[in-house]
Lab assay of single mutants.
Amino acid sequence: MQGVVKVNSALNMRSGPGSNYGVIGTLRNNDKVEIIKEVDGAYEIRFNGKVGYASKSYITIVN
């Protein structure tokens, strides 16, 4: 499943599905991501070869 990031500035990509996990990357508006699955209000995603988590509130599914 594919998604597009929709933010005003940037969205943190984290090592786990919550803000208490470390930041492993930054997503920008209109970045395209692969959605692997939904976990606790976040999506597990793949972006630029990395797998991490981002809030589903800022990712629009575009299948």
Rank of each mutant, 00 (worst) to 15 (best):
E44S: 02
G52I: 03
Y58D: 11
R14Q: 07
V62N: 07
L27H: 01
I24S: 04
M13A: 05
K50P: 00
S15A: 11
G25N: 06
N30R: 08
Y58A: 12
V23F: 05
L11P: 03
G52L: 03
I36L: 14
L27G: 01
S55L: 09
M1N: 08
M1C: 14
Y43F: 09
I24T: 06
A10S: 14
V51Q: 09
S57K: 15
P17V: 08
A54M: 06
G41V: 04
N12S: 11
V5C: 05
E38R: 03
V39E: 06
R46T: 07
N29H: 09
I45Q: 00
V23N: 05
R28M: 12
E44C: 11
E44P: 00
V39W: 10
S55I: 08
Y58P: 02
N20S: 12
Y58T: 07
A10M: 14
G3Y: 02
N29Q: 07
T60Q: 14
I24F: 01
L27Q: 01
P17I: 08
L11E: 07
G41T: 07
D40E: 12
L27K: 01
S9H: 15
K50N: 09
V62T: 11
Y53W: 14
V39Y: 10
G16T: 06
G3P: 01
I24D: 02
I35Q: 00
N30D: 10
Y43H: 00
K37L: 08
I45E: 00
S55G: 10
V23C: 08
G18H: 07
T26C: 13
V23P: 05
R14P: 02
K37E: 05
Y58I: 06
G3E: 01
L11N: 03
G22P: 15
V7S: 14
K6G: 05
N29L: 08
Y43C: 01
A54P: 02
V5Y: 00
K6W: 04
L11H: 05
A10W: 14
M13K: 01
E34M: 11
V62P: 07
K56C: 07
I61L: 10
M13S: 02
N20R: 10
I35E: 00
F47V: 09
R46N: 10
V33C: 04
T26P: 05
R46Q: 08
Y21M: 08
N8T: 13
M1K: 12
K37I: 05
I61V: 12
G3S: 02
R46C: 13
V23Y: 05
Q2F: 15
K50A: 07
N30V: 02
N29R: 07
R46G: 04
K56F: 03
G41H: 08
A10G: 11
D31M: 05
S15I: 08
E34N: 06
D40S: 09
V51G: 04
Q2Y: 15
R28G: 07
N12W: 07
A54L: 10
K37F: 05
N12V: 15
G25I: 10
A42V: 14
F47P: 00
G41K: 06
V51F: 08
L27S: 01
V4K: 06
N8Y: 08
I36V: 09
R28I: 10
K50D: 07
A10D: 12
G52W: 02
S19Y: 13
S9T: 13
N30T: 04
V62L: 13
T26H: 10
N63P: 13
E38K: 03
N12E: 15
V33L: 04
D40A: 10
F47H: 09
T60K: 13
Y43G: 01
E38P: 03
N29W: 07
V51H: 10
R46K: 11
K6S: 11
S55H: 10
S55P: 15
R14T: 13
N20K: 11
S57D: 15
R28C: 14
A10I: 15
N12A: 15
E34C: 13
T60H: 14
I59R: 00
